[in-house]
Amino acid sequence: MLITHAGLSPRIHPAAYVAPNAVVCGDVRIGAGCRILFGAQVVAEGGSIEIGENTIVMENAVLRSTARHSLVVGNHCLVGPQAHVVGCTLEDEVFVATGAAIFHAAQVGRGSEVRIHAVVHLKTQLPAGTTVPIGWVAVGEPAELLPPGEHERIWALQQPLDFPLTVYGLQRSEADMVKITRGLSQSLAAHRDDRVHDAS
C-alpha cells in the first residue's frame, strides 16, 4: 500500500517490489532491486527515508523517520523480520537480524552485522565491519558493545545521550508520559489527511 503523507508520495523504482500488504508512506525513495516484503512498514513522518539498491526489507520490519531524524539505508542491506530501524544511517552491506533495533541518529558502518535482538542505541557510531552479538547492546561514540546483563554500564553510557531530548525534544527533567504522548498525538494527527494510492 502506497500512501501520500504531508503532501509527499513514495517514489518506487520500477525494478523494486513492494508486497501488497506492506505499507510505504510519505517521503520515501526505494531504489532498484529492492524488495519490501509482506507486512513491512516503511513510514516517513517529517524526515525522509532513502533506501538504496538491492536492499531487502523482510516481513513485519518497521523502518521509520521522524521530523528530527531522517533514515538512510544503503545498498545491499538486509533488514530482518520484526526489526525496528528508526531515524539512523545504515551504510552499504549492513545486516540487521530478526528483532534487532537501531535508534535515532545512530550510524552503522559498512558491512556491519546487528544480530538477533541486538540493539544499537541512539547516537551510537558503529565502525565498519562491527558485529553486535545476539542480544547485546551497542552504545556510545565510539560504540561499546555490552551484554544485556550489564545494565548499570549501559545506563552510564546511555544517560548522557539524552533519549527524551533527542527523540521527543523534551529535557529529561521535564519528560513524562503525558507530555510525550500529547506531543506524539499532535504530530501523528497529520495521518488523518493521508491519501492511499489506487493499486491499479
Score class of each variant (00 low, 15 high):
residue 4 T to N: 06
residue 4 T to S: 14
residue 6 A to P: 01
residue 8 L to N: 15
residue 12 I to H: 13
residue 12 I to A: 10
residue 15 A to P: 00
residue 16 A to Q: 13
residue 17 Y to M: 12
residue 17 Y to Q: 13
residue 22 A to T: 14
residue 27 D to G: 04
residue 28 V to N: 13
residue 30 I to G: 13
residue 32 A to L: 07
residue 32 A to M: 05
residue 33 G to Y: 06
residue 33 G to H: 08
residue 35 R to A: 15
residue 37 L to T: 08
residue 39 G to V: 14
residue 39 G to N: 14
residue 40 A to C: 11
residue 42 V to W: 09
residue 43 V to F: 05
residue 44 A to R: 06
residue 49 I to D: 02
residue 50 E to Y: 02
residue 51 I to T: 09
residue 54 N to W: 11
residue 56 I to A: 12
residue 57 V to K: 07
residue 57 V to S: 09
residue 64 R to Y: 12
residue 73 V to H: 06
residue 78 L to F: 12
residue 79 V to H: 03
residue 79 V to Y: 02
residue 82 Q to L: 14
residue 85 V to T: 03
residue 86 V to G: 06
residue 87 G to I: 10
residue 87 G to C: 08
residue 87 G to N: 04
residue 88 C to H: 05
residue 90 L to A: 08
residue 91 E to D: 15
residue 95 F to I: 15
residue 96 V to I: 15
residue 99 G to C: 07
residue 99 G to L: 07
residue 100 A to Q: 03
residue 101 A to R: 13
residue 102 I to W: 00
residue 104 H to M: 02
residue 106 A to E: 08
residue 106 A to S: 15
residue 106 A to G: 04
residue 108 V to Y: 06
residue 109 G to R: 10
residue 111 G to R: 08
residue 113 E to S: 10
residue 113 E to D: 05
residue 113 E to W: 13
residue 114 V to K: 00
residue 114 V to I: 15
residue 114 V to S: 07
residue 115 R to G: 00
residue 116 I to F: 11
residue 120 V to L: 01
residue 121 H to V: 03
residue 121 H to T: 10
residue 123 K to P: 00
residue 125 Q to A: 11
residue 126 L to T: 04
residue 126 L to Y: 03
residue 126 L to N: 03
residue 127 P to A: 09
residue 128 A to S: 14
residue 137 V to M: 06
residue 140 G to P: 14
residue 142 P to S: 04
residue 142 P to T: 09
residue 144 E to C: 02
residue 144 E to N: 02
residue 146 L to F: 11
residue 147 P to V: 01
residue 147 P to F: 01
residue 151 H to L: 08
residue 152 E to S: 09
residue 152 E to N: 09
residue 154 I to R: 00
residue 155 W to H: 11
residue 157 L to C: 08
residue 159 Q to S: 13
residue 159 Q to V: 05
residue 168 Y to A: 06
residue 170 L to W: 02
residue 170 L to A: 02
residue 171 Q to C: 01
residue 176 D to E: 10
residue 176 D to Y: 06
residue 177 M to G: 00
residue 179 K to D: 04
residue 180 I to M: 09
residue 182 R to G: 01
residue 182 R to V: 04
residue 183 G to V: 03
residue 185 S to N: 13
residue 186 Q to C: 03
residue 187 S to Y: 11
residue 188 L to S: 05
residue 189 A to L: 08
residue 190 A to W: 03
residue 191 H to E: 05
residue 193 D to H: 13
residue 193 D to M: 02
residue 193 D to P: 00
residue 196 V to W: 12
residue 196 V to A: 11
residue 197 H to N: 05
residue 199 A to I: 05
residue 199 A to W: 11
residue 200 S to N: 14
